[in-house]
């Protein structure tokens, strides 16, 4: 299971959960890399704010900034040709929004800047 953390919270020995990609989807640091202060510094130099690290048996709660959540919500609602009418549809929509928000964070917020 992966958890999203700010780059400044990287600790030696953490394992990268998802590959860090550049804008052309080329792998800069592959998933599974054992992170060190070297990676922490280079990620900061590349202006990467968040990464995903592997965790075990811990509930994943990532704090998503409000503005990112709003962008993700607007993006998802634009794509949907419908509005949720029951609890499971709301759960599906909110989960989609959260996934989109996490991908925005990990991609350096491409949607916001385009």
């Amino acid at each position: 299971m992966n958890k999203t953390i700010p780059v400044e919270s990287i600790e030696d020995g953490m394992v990268l959960g998802n590959s860090v990609l550049n804008q052309f989807s080329q792998v800069l640091i592959p998933a599974g890399t054992v992170l060190t202060s070297f990676h922490k510094n280079i990620l900061a130099r590349w202006d990467v704010s968040f990464i995903q690290v592997k965790i075990e048996n811990e509930s994943v709660e990532t704090t998503i900034p409000e503005e990112i959540l709003l962008q993700a919500r607007n993006y998802t609602l634009d794509k949907m040709l419908w509005t949720p009418e029951n609890d499971i549809e709301k759960d599906l929509m909110e989960t989609s929004i959260k996934l989109k928000a996490l991908s925005l964070i990990l991609k350096g917020n491409e949607y916001a800047t385009n």
Partner: peptide, 30 residues
């Protein structure tokens, strides 16, 4: 909706409401 790949659609259609009744999935399934 999760954007796991893409089959070409930009817009996503509504689930058939009767399907939820058929499947009886918990409300927090996703």
């Amino acid at each position: 909706l999760f954007e796991f790949g893409s089959a070409g659609s930009v817009y996503i259609h509504k689930p058939n409401p009767d399907v939820w009744t058929t499947l009886s999935m918990p409300n927090n399934f996703f």
